[in-house]
């Protein structure tokens, strides 16, 4: 399992910072998800992990593979692009579904959405 390449010190410090920062952000996001007290607040928490948290971890991966293979390894960028394009779609659909269900239950403190039938 342990086949980590020996990197120059600056590179391993950089990769470590990226990984720890990203993982902490993902953890804080998921912690918020389990802690916040209403659905509409909870929906904000995971975006910590899907935006800057994911970018940090992907940047760490890019740095590690680029330095250890001494060529530019960039394919992690694709995951980043994909994530930032899909998160708005999933969250928007989820919030709209929640709004719709709340309206159906007769809750008055959510705005009315004119959904096509």
């Amino acid at each position: 399992m342990n086949s980590l390449a020996e990197l120059p010190l600056w590179a391993s410090i950089l990769v470590s910072i990226f990984l720890l920062l990203g993982a902490s952000l993902a953890l804080i996001g998921s912690f918020g998800l389990s802690r916040l007290n209403s659905f509409y607040k909870r929906v904000h928490a995971p975006t910590l992990g899907t935006t800057f948290g994911a970018f940090c971890i992907l940047a760490g991966s890019i740095t590690y593979f680029s330095v250890s293979q001494s060529r530019l390894v960039l394919h992690e960028v694709l995951i980043g692009v994909f994530l930032s394009l899909t998160t708005p779609i999933t969250l928007m659909l989820l919030v709209r579904a929640a709004l719709y269900r709340d309206r159906q239950k007769g809750s008055q403190d959510v705005p009315n959405l004119d959904l096509p039938d």
């Binding site: 929906v43 904000h44 935006t51 998160t87 969250l91 709209r96």
Partner: peptide, 16 residues
């Protein structure tokens, strides 16, 4: 939409 949702704390709900 991508900008608003990617900044934590705001979420795009719908556009009329």
């Amino acid at each position: 939409a991508c900008i608003i949702t990617s900044t934590p704390g705001t979420i795009w709900v719908s556009y009329d």
